[in-house]
Design a protein around this nucleic acid. Structure first.
Length: 213
DNA sequence: ACGCGGATGTTCT
DNA sequence: GAACATCCGCGTG
């Protein structure tokens, strides 16, 4: 028997908990993005936890700024940031309010609207690569800074919503060091993914870039 | 398969 | 002025 996925939205209470509890439980959840051309739905397969002001890897480590303000607000909202001059990444803010923690949504499987995602991800060589990586995920789902602060718990009429979906068996959840995080934030195994899932992005260690001229 | 450098612009020191 | 929660294309093996 296959149980059909639960298509009700995750309640705010789900996010209003310590981020290390929430992050692994986001695996298997359904992210719905409503675009003008139609809906895109993605099943989350890889996430990373960022623990706020106590976490050297977090954008909130040095306190509140204009960019990270949403992380300091109520849980269950989208924190979208722009990086490397080209890319956007999407987080789900967790609780309690003021803790400035969040979960980076790193990868997933596009289940609905793949034809829409392909238009934005021309370089993807197959559908498994459409959302294999945090910036690819945001690109595939047309997530930009305009969605920063969006309430993820509003229901399916919202531009961005997280549904209960079908969490994997706990035996299938893996964890390891976060990708692209260096320094004192590198050691914690705060990256979570579904075992053997082909849409999970490859691990890359943090590389200090040599400065060019 | 894997490693490297360039792209690009916002944010913070 | 440097770093950046990244990705892509091209080189080598």
């Amino acid at each position: 028997m296959i149980e059909s996925p639960d298509r009700t939205p995750l309640p705010r209470d789900f996010f209003d908990r310590p981020v290390l509890e929430v992050a692994p439980e986001l695996l298997g959840r359904i992210l719905i993005r409503l675009t003008a051309d139609g809906p895109i739905e993605l099943r989350l397969t890889e996430v990373e936890a960022y623990a706020g002001e106590v976490d050297p890897g977090s954008h909130a480590y040095r306190g509140r700024t204009a960019r990270n303000a949403v992380m300091f607000g109520p849980p269950g909202h989208a924190y979208v940031y722009f990086t490397y001059g080209m890319w956007h990444c999407l987080n789900a803010v967790c609780g309690p309010e003021g803790r400035a923690s969040g979960v980076l949504l790193r990868a997933g499987e596009i289940q609905v609207g793949a034809e829409l995602a392909r238009k934005r991800r021309i370089s993807a060589r197959n559908d498994r690569e459409l959302a294999k990586g945090p910036a690819r995920l945001a690109t595939a789902l047309a997530v930009g800074r305009d969605l920063n602060g969006t309430d993820l718990c509003n229901g399916p009429d919202s531009p961005l919503t997280l549904l209960h979906g079908s969490p994997p068996d706990p035996d299938q959840v893996r964890s390891g060091p976060r990708t692209g995080v260096g320094g004192d934030g590198a050691q914690h195994p705060w990256r979570f993914w579904i075992a053997d899932d082909p849409t999970v992005s490859p691990y890359r260690a943090h590389l200090p870039r040599r400065r060019s001229t």
